[in-house]
Amino acid sequence: MLCTPALAEQEAVEIGDAERGAILFEDCASCHEVGAGAEDRIGPHLNGIFGRKAAAHDGYPYSDGIQRAGRDGLVWDLRRLDAYIENPKALVSGTRMNFAGYDDPKDRADVLAYLRSFSDNPQNIPEAQPTARPREVELPPETLAIVGDPEYGEYLSSECTGCHQRDGSAQGIPSITQWPAEDFAIAMHAYKRKIRPHPVMQMMASRLSDEEIAALAAYFGALD
């Protein structure tokens, strides 16, 4: 497995060899463009794919299968992309993606490292770097182990949903639904410690306790 949620940020540093990925991407390039000026061809262009909700890119006629996955809340994070290019049909049924998949985890990692360099918004956080960074904060295991109270999270979430949409759509403000709980907690602690730079998020996170962050992670992680 490419990464467990717990280690997502950490292992993502070494997600793969983007240069080798560029060569491997030639397998994909007959259908997909990526990079400056990329346009939709047989498949949609792949700029900004990291963190985008499935079937969310305007103007491309997605298959019913991908559209359904998008409505179900599929977001193209590292794990989902990895699963998809390992075996597209295993993750989403009925798509036009005529590709058998990469069996070798290293091939997948390298292609994803290459694609990630064209995504401004890994994890859909606008100020994060285009390529993955080391885990931003070291949290004691007991902090990460807190099981959040989703009911409390639901109340607290009402502060978030003045900007972030509950249905996971993202227009100028990123989606925060369906994150693995630990990724969510790590990101919030990074804002709280002012390691991530966004002033609104620093302010909002600064007064959340460990339990409150866990509660929000539990609530948003489980949203349909």
Binding site: C163, G172, I173
Partner: peptide, 17 residues
């Protein structure tokens, strides 16, 4: 520019809320 784009996102968010 990002701040402006964020405001568009906020508008969509708060009106949905």
């Amino acid at each position: 520019r990002i701040t402006y784009e964020e405001s568009l996102g906020w508008y969509a968010g708060i009106t949905a809320d």
